[in-house]
Design a protein around this nucleic acid. Structure first.
Length: 257
DNA sequence: ATGCCGCCCGTAGGGCGA
């Protein structure tokens, strides 16, 4: 018996609903964290997930952002957003699943390094860091999964030279990611599947997927207590090859029970 | 590269993503 958790930026739940349902039925994860659902709480189709045996926590928003957590067991102590941070952008959702504290994150994109959005990204990440630090003191078994919009190293980038100077790979963003790891978290893919040039996102434009022009920006981070149970972390590239795909593809972590 | 593609809202085309 094992526990499987996954993360997937689906870039619109309404457009990708059938793909998500099919993926759930095939992989039967215990937990699926979704980002960029781009739907309000009211329009989130809770019932179709309930019918598949999933409990749902949603933090929705019209048009942009929005996150959700699906779980086979009831979600407890749900916390929407980062406490004491009045951010109109809905990017963080936490819940307890069995013994695991799960935080679903959709880190801001950052646009370009000279933009206001980049400033927001760095400030936002400081808030996330403080929140995670607090969470870890109370929950030794914590998993933080989602779209971090940061490629941690050059080996996570198809063309590091072309990306130099852009958001998602800048030294300041990479320092943010390192600061998370410095809290004691592990990048589960790097530890369990350390092959280079493995990506979770490919640009829609210029045949990015066919040419494997990708970035590894979706991550599952885990505390030492979780790592002791971690058996496997894989990127499932298949959904990216479907018709009308998300530009991201799922990352899956398997734990021993 | 002010480009490419796709989604949202809303019904044209700009905002946004990465």
């Amino acid at each position: 018996m094992s526990i499987t958790l996954a993360t997937w930026n689906i870039n619109s739940l309404r457009v990708r609903l059938e793909q998500v349902l099919a993926w759930l039925q095939e992989h039967k994860p215990d937990v699926l964290a979704l980002q960029e659902i781009k739907v309000t709480d009211e329009l989130f189709p809770v019932e179709v997930f309930t019918a598949l045996g999933y409990h749902v926590a949603v933090l929705g928003q019209p048009t942009y952002n929005g996150v959700a957590i699906l779980s086979r067991v009831p979600l407890k102590d749900v916390v929407a957003g980062i406490p004491d941070y009045d951010d109109p952008q809905k990017r963080v959702l936490a819940a307890t699943v069995g013994e695991l504290r799960v935080i679903c994150v959709y880190v801001p994109n950052g646009a370009s390094v000279d933009s206001e959005k980049y400033v927001y990204k760095l400030q936002w990440f400081d808030r996330l860091l403080a929140y995670v630090k607090n969470t870890l003191t109370a929950h030794p078994q914590t998993i933080i999964l989602g779209d971090y919009n940061i490629a941690p190293e050059d080996r996570d980038v198809h063309d590091p030279v072309a990306w130099q100077g852009h958001a998602l790979v800048s030294p300041k963003e990479r320092a943010c990611f390192e600061a998370l790891l410095a809290l004691g978290l592990s990048d589960t893919f790097r530890v369990l599947a350390p092959e280079d040039n493995s990506y979770t996102w490919w640009d829609y434009r210029m045949n990015g997927f066919k040419r494997n022009h990708g970035l590894r920006i979706d991550h599952i981070l885990a505390t030492p207590a979780v790592m002791a149970r971690a058996e496997r972390c894989v990127i499932d590239k298949l959904p990216r090859a479907l018709d009308r795909p998300s530009d991201h593809t799922p990352v899956i972590l398997q734990l021993s029970a």
